[in-house]
Amino acid sequence: MARFIRDILAALSYEPPVDKGPVDQESLSRLDQRLAPFADKGAGPRSAMAIQPGECSVWDGNPRDQPGLTAENCRSLIDSIASEGGNRIPVLVRLNPPGSDRPYQLLVGSRRRFAVDWLNHHGRPDMRLSALVVDLSDEEAFRLADIENRERADISELDRARSYQNAVDRFYGGVQSRMAEALNLSNSQLSRLLALAQLPEEVVGAFATRDELRVRYSELLTPLLRRPDQRGRMVAEARLIGEQQQTLALQGERMIPPATVLARLREAATPHAPEDARDIAIIAGGTRIGRAKASRSGGLTVDLSIAEDADLDELLARLRETIVAVRGV
């Protein structure tokens, strides 16, 4: 089995994506397609076995955000596994070291494990998890999980970046070029991901959700964070935005969009001449269309430059968000 998995690693590392066509459950990754023929249980060395989800601890090298798995975001998979009587694509596990409280360690298949475990607690207690037991090193397990998760839309760029940040020291001796070669990435691609992982927590918290934070944003923000004075101003603004996001969420209102967050962070890092009040950019469609300023007397000044083809609904929504933000300064 180990030889078979290593053959998969060698092949999938360089295979281009294929047109998989329609499927009747979650879209299959290329790894899933390779594993599907071994779903049938049997006595052969490459046959899947049935285990209980609770017999697996989740390997900490997998980039997936385990607490983020819920019945809601796994609903289609839960329904598919329930109708088929089990997971059609086996998960990959390896034996835990002696003395561990669980016999297996889950390497690939977090969503399938979650779905079967959920069904066990909601009317299907006898359902088991189809699993293949493999013998892989940590580095091989990381590459295998990465191959699968690169094709998953529900893995955020931030989760993937933080996984890479941990892996470069843990599996590749801190040598970025070794990791890039192993993952079939360019050094520049890997550098951009690692820069995203290194953004301050305050900056991450300024965005409404982790999914909104993109690699391209870190490319704009990272150079501004290198100078201590600019970093301090940006982090302070990020804290303010984060507090405003929390208030909007509690009130059930639309949260500050990522383009506005990005513009405010970049503007905060740039020194301003002393003024009676702070300016906050008004961003619509990714373009600055004006500014809002609160005076010490409590008034509010708004300057706008509106194009003829401007989307008035979006403009008014952005204007409202900005006014709320200025009042909170």
Rank of each mutant, 00 (worst) to 15 (best):
A269Y: 09
P125V: 07
Q251R: 15
P17K: 13
E140P: 05
E321G: 08
E148N: 15
D159K: 08
P53G: 04
N187H: 03
R239I: 10
I283W: 01
L194Q: 04
T247R: 15
V58G: 09
T70W: 03
K41M: 10
A2M: 07
R216C: 07
L69E: 03
I289A: 05
A50S: 14
Q176M: 07
R296Q: 11
G61K: 06
T247L: 14
R327K: 10
I280W: 11
D135F: 03
E267I: 04
Q198D: 13
A36C: 00
A36N: 02
A317M: 05
E267V: 06
D40Q: 13
V134D: 05
A249C: 07
P53E: 03
V329Q: 14
S29M: 03
E26I: 05
D79Q: 14
D138H: 11
L312M: 15
L319G: 02
V23M: 08
E212H: 14
A50Q: 12
E140S: 04
G299N: 09
T222W: 11
E237F: 02
R150I: 08
G173A: 01
A206Q: 00
T322Q: 02
G42K: 08
A236G: 05
L265A: 02
A43R: 15
I241G: 00
I81D: 02
E321Q: 15
I256G: 02
M234L: 15
D309K: 14
E212T: 04
P125Y: 09
D101L: 10
P45F: 12
P37L: 05
